[in-house]
Design a protein around this nucleic acid. Sequence first.
DNA 1: CTCATTTGACCTGA
DNA 2: TCAGGTCAAATGAG
Length: 288
Amino acid sequence: MNSPHEKAVQAIRYGHSCAMRLKRRLNHPMADGGPLSSYDLAKSIVESFSNAISILSAKPETEDDQFSDLSSRDSSPPPQGSPSKKRKIDSTNSSENWRDDSPDPIYYDGYLWRKYGQKSIKKSNHQRSYYRCSYNKDHNCGARKHEQKIKDNPPVYRTTYFGHHTCKTEHNLDAILFAGQDPVDDLKSTQMIRFGKDQDHEKETRSNGFSLSVKHEEDIIREQGMMDQYREITSNDQDCQDVIEEYLSSPSGSYPPSSSSGSESADFNSDLLFDNPDSWDRYDQFYF
DNA sequence: CTCATTTGACCTGA
DNA sequence: TCAGGTCAAATGAG
């Protein structure tokens, strides 16, 4: 049995394989001749990365399972229910909370966030930014996160997540699809998300401005007709199958992993994955 | 005009 | 009383 680290790497590699296929398809839409399944490819990418995140977010059973110095999960109990005006969540005492330390701010983590506050923290030289899910009102989603720079040199940004996303994920998928729409320059897309509407580097909170404007994002998608392009769902599974076969034929390719990735990650998965049964049937062919 | 961000005020657990 | 989390009015961008 592969270690969690290996599983995660396999998941990421698989996602990368799908992404490359999708990129080629976007570069040469007519190359394959037959109907496209770009939307399904995108789904596979998201699902693969979701699974990788779930694996990496799960509490390791041993120290050897710890995959990185820069990512960790709090080894403590879950937060209380809905947020109140005052902190009810003890971040040191929650298993549903998890944090991610990264040398860069997390520009896009699959969800859309709205900033609702910023505070100077006594123990730190840096301010802490507070975000909640953009669908907090629409879907009564209680997910929140804190973002804070904890080290200067090298820079380390700590993002602490609280609660579960109860919002629909379709919007988030759309954002992902949009992020990958430019096959020529992926970095360009990333930067659009990264810096939003301004590039004010004077303020830490702005340089960390990875929160997306939902409306802005959807408008762009609509304007560029990307939705139509990505929703060319057909009954033809051949393309996804090709990706799988291509990946499995590679020396290190053994993804998709088994379903025994642990119940602890199930909640996180359910947040990111799709509720379309058809897509699951398709994915199950090679996922579980 | 609409909406997201900013920021000072307010609230509350420790 | 303090520190940290949230609210909400003000502000600015599109």
